[in-house]
Design a protein around this nucleic acid. Structure first.
Lengths: 333, 333
DNA sequence: GTGAAAGCGCTAACAC
DNA sequence: GTGTTAGCGCTTTCAC
């Protein structure tokens, strides 16, 4: 039924080894034999079986990607970055959604290792100690993309979340605001709690402004909760908002405008993400650029180094961020 | 180094066959032996090698997914639908982006088949005859998701694109419009050219309105081109717009408002997609619901039937659509 | 209920 | 430059 390397060898009057050599581009083959073999391969429609190859060579040229949810544009962007570099290095990707469910994450890791992937890119807001334990004893290299492991046991690629958030809040402070709200994503996420929120507090403190917990509201990152946050915050009359992502920022803008407030005149907003949405908002969002595509790409690149057992110069990569200034803040040029 | 089924068999004093049976949940094992084997598996930390299993059983429990671009929210939604059902049936997914490049599509197909996937879900705006040829002779089942193959040679899942577009344009006609613009995606796509555009013409014709090609503008589906389309159309003074997706619709709204026009008072808009964006627009978009998630889910479900060699009742599945009425059209309740 | 053994289709020494 | 052969780790008859 299916044509194998054996069939090709027989038809071409050579050994399987020789066929294998031409298929794998090994130079130790006389041009004439190579040509003959190639001809038979063509005639028979031979297609190498990657599974057999994987078993024999212990390499599958596929890497596992575990992310929270591909239908979320942030993670989709990350996935594209990963896939592009993977393709460049001839790897395929097994993609799975964890929904940030720890059991699912553990089980997915197990499945991927069972499938003998050559490496894994992993993303999650929180890396449990159990997960970390499994990652450390993984027979296959793993890199964390946009995810924090404080122990630095696993390789990772991130930006300076604290620095970015600090700069954003400081900008708001410098524009004269005293009541700055923080519309946060889930505080179960280390990035929100230990970096953004912390930076928010520090920026305030450094400006001599008292921290008021009433001004921070925890949301689920959705547009609707962005709108609701404005209602929740209304009694405390914030004049500026630092918002955890673009979608919520749009919710904040819409809620503000419905209540008769103008952005940026009555309230300034700095978002975090700088996705396509930032330019599709009215006013367009000033936003901290969170380079998801790059994080994915660099993570995958780093992974290839581990897979090739190359020298790793830095295990914890920190990518640059920048603030894209648009219309949701006043221009103080 | 790695522990194999052989190690487990030896330690448990049973044969490899028996270990295989307990690992695969075969009932023909005495409870006592099962328990003993399970214990050894636990102790040794045995993890079955899916590659070896795949070679022996000729099943990999992974399916290939070829889509244009995962960073596009439409395809991401589709991918999520596919993955959820795949997970439900214990399949993993190899995900690849084709960027609608035909050579890449062919090569991706080849790679997936080489990796011995048990099935493939494929999406592309245009299925070339060459691709179709390869699909027909694929040893593995393939289903097209949201993609048209006029020959009906390959299984597929779609909605009634023509009916949906016709209904949208008719609604605009019924609202009294005579100059209805069609802001289309690429006309290289069969869905745009042979379904939406055709339905647009028919709806106009049925209403006794002459077709004017000046009123249709071909775009690349982006926000920016949505904005530009309004400028291009401005000399012909359309009073209603049928737009190919939500992102372009938002561009149209913004351009319209910048030129002093109010939506829906001065211009009505019906979009196509009904993504999360539709509710995030101001005014919120009336939009034809294009159920990408469902298309993905149903495609994958259909694929499982092929993979299990079940009876297929319908090879070409047509899912229902509906029009979500919101604020970008006038309410004629 | 359990075991023996023959593959699955390929790679990778090693020999010539 | 090419061939031989022993696995890779599992499933799957077929016996018993």
């Amino acid at each position: 039924m299916t044509v194998t390397i054996y069939d090709v060898a027989r038809e071409a009057n050579v050994s399987m080894a020789t066929v294998s050599r031409v298929v794998n581009g090994n130079q130790n083959v006389k041009p004439a034999t190579r040509k003959k073999v190639l001809k038979v391969i063509e005639e028979l429609g031979y297609r190498p079986n990657a599974v057999a190859r994987g078993l024999a060579s212990k390499k599958t040229t596929t890497v596992g990607v575990i992310i929270p949810d591909i239908s979320n544009s942030m993670y989709a962007e990350l996935a594209r970055g990963i896939e592009d570099i993977a393709t460049m290095y001839r790897y395929n990707i097994i993609l799975s959604n964890s929904d940030q469910n720890q059991n699912k994450e553990l089980q997915l890791l197990e499945t991927m290792l069972g499938k003998q992937v050559d490496g894994i890119v992993f993303m999650s807001d929180v890396i449990s100690t159990e997960l970390l334990y499994e990652m450390e004893r993984s027979p296959t290299p793993i890199v964390l993309a946009g995810s924090i492991d404080e122990t630095n046991a696993v390789a990772s690629v991130n930006i300076d979340y604290h620095g970015a958030a600090y700069e954003a809040v400081k900008k708001l402070v410098d524009n004269g605001h005293k009541k700055i709200a923080f519309v946060s994503g889930p505080l179960s996420s280390k990035i929100n709690k230990d970096f953004k929120l912390k930076a928010y507090k520090e920026a305030l403190e450094d400006a001599g402004i008292d921290y008021d917990e009433k001004l921070v509201v925890e949301c689920n990152n959705s547009y609707d909760e962005g709108m609701k946050a404005v209602a929740t915050l209304q009694p405390y009359e914030p004049t500026a908002y630092f918002v955890s992502n673009d979608e919520m920022s749009i919710g904040v803008i819409h809620a503000l405008e419905e209540s008769g407030k103008k952005v940026p005149e009555d309230a300034e907003i700095i978002s975090y993400e700088n996705s396509k949405l930032a330019r599709m908002a009215r006013p367009m969002l000033t936003s901290i650029a969170f380079p998801l595509y790059d994080i994915g790409a660099v993570s995958m690149r780093l992974l290839t180094k581990y897979m090739n057992e190359e020298e790793i110069e830095e295990k914890q990569v920190i990518l640059p961020y920048r603030i894209e200034e648009r219309q949701s803040t006043k221009n103080n040029a």
